[in-house]
């Protein structure tokens, strides 16, 4: 069977994530950083900078971008891609907000 089942996982209320900040979700294979912007958009990325694996969740969130705390790469939260002169991409995961709770789609998160 090839049907792809969607695995939306309730990671908690939106208010658990600070505005212009992030929280992490731990999964067996990888850590996911869930970001909340000043205007309550939410994005989920693998918590690894494409540069040297820095924890993006610890970076400063500005607009819909985050600056990696290790070497200041700026990652676009929507695409996961590095901006400017840098090249590389962090894995992104679908997110949605239902009744004030943040759901992350985990199918790609559990894949190798």
């Amino acid at each position: 069977m090839n049907a792809v089942t969607l695995n939306w996982f309730d990671i908690g209320p939106l208010t658990a994530i600070p505005r212009r900040g992030a929280r992490t979700v731990r999964t067996p294979r990888r850590e996911i950083a869930v970001f909340r912007t000043a205007d309550d958009q939410v994005f989920a990325l693998e918590n690894r900078c494409p540069h040297k694996g820095g924890p993006l969740s610890e970076g400063i969130v500005h607009g819909a971008k985050v600056t990696c705390p290790l070497h200041n790469w700026v990652i676009d939260l929507e695409s996961g891609g590095a901006t400017g002169e840098d090249h590389g991409c962090s894995r992104t995961f679908p997110v949605k907000i239902v009744d004030g709770h943040v759901f992350v789609e985990m199918t790609r998160a559990i894949a190798a």
């Binding site: 996982f9 309730d10 990671i11 908690g12 979700v25 731990r26 999964t27 869930v34 985990m106």
Partner: peptide, 10 residues
């Protein structure tokens, strides 16, 4: 972490 996903059924 805001959540820990130990295992996903599928």
């Amino acid at each position: 972490p805001v959540a820990t996903v130990a295992w996903i059924g599928v």
